[in-house]
Design a protein around this nucleic acid. Structure first.
Lengths: 166, 166
DNA sequence: CGGTCTCTTGACGGAGTTCAAAGCTAGTGG
DNA sequence: CCACTAGCTTTGAACTCCGTCAAGAGACCG
């Protein structure tokens, strides 16, 4: 039920306004999930690499059009399945268990993201990301990371300058 | 399996460091969920009133000690059940369906909370809260709302001054 | 009454943004 | 193979938003 698909750099997996009716698993590559506000500014919600699940859970759960784009930053191999097939596969206990773990892990992660955004400084968030996902800074341009942290590229540049001189 | 319990003002439903092994449904009253950082500052993660589910999903999912307190702000009536009983009740299809809707609704809400925290100004977050939950400002002190929004009480006071004079 | 809690207001400071300019790097086409 | 361009990063200066600190005014309650 999972179909291998290749997404070339900048190719969309999902576009804002579409209902997200499929999910995927990244085998190789790197992607990003982002929204665009009324001023045209991109806000990166998630950066994703190998072994990550992709898709907009909010759109899947509510059935509402997604407010996000998901596209490839590197050429990326993804295993894709429809939400209907996901539902069918849940009759397999091992798959149901894995799906449960995936959703729960996602929920835990987003809780931390919300809490960190509300309580930590830009520098603290940067340091935490450096601990958790140092590879992001190699694979994505710095202004993606800045947007992911909710700050400007200039701010990340200045944080790095201070951090390396210590 | 749900046991009615009365929580008096300031009484704890959950304390930081405990594993959260039960959930509850607020029948009447108002509660808050918050963490305390190393400096002793409280950070309110959630404000909850009638018809809200309470509990720390992160601790339930991971089995790790909770980083939150949950206590009553008003005298509150809660229907309480253990996580084991929740699991048993899921054999009832209608209950399983409701539980699923509850978790999904929670996931959607926390996504919006994270996105708003990273992309909106203090004033925009305040206005959004005013739209979504105007009753919070009646039932909770203003500095609770401030902490929930991730700002200081002084900032909420100034936002209100500007907003009312328009 | 006299505490304690809450909200407001002002002055000041700091973290982060905005705007502009310049340097750097990698991909692309002639 | 080189030159050129486009995207990325850095840096500086001015500015804005919000936090901190301090003081005072109400409101509530024993």
């Amino acid at each position: 039920m999972f179909v291998p698909r290749r997404f070339r750099k900048r190719q969309y997996f999902l576009q804002q306004g579409e209902v997200c009716n499929r999910g995927g698993f990244i085998v190789r590559g790197a992607m990003r999930q982002y929204s665009v506000d009324e001023k045209g500014t991109e806000h990166i919600a998630e950066l994703m690499v190998e072994n990550w699940w992709i898709g907009d859970l909010v759109s899947m759960f509510t059935g509402a059009p997604s407010s996000f784009y998901i596209d490839a930053w590197e050429d990326t191999d993804v295993l894709v399945a429809s939400v209907e097939d996901f539902a069918r596969l849940r009759s397999i206990p091992a798959f149901a268990q894995m799906a449960k773990a995936m959703i729960e892990g996602h929920t835990v992660a987003i809780h931390h993201r919300a809490h960190d955004a509300l309580t930590l400084s830009a520098e603290q968030r940067y340091e935490k990301l450096l601990q958790a996902h140092p590879e992001f800074l190699q694979r994505f341009p710095q202004h993606f990371v800045a947007s992911y942290l909710g700050v400007t590229p200039e701010t990340v540049s200045r944080i790095r300058r201070l951090a390396t001189r210590r």
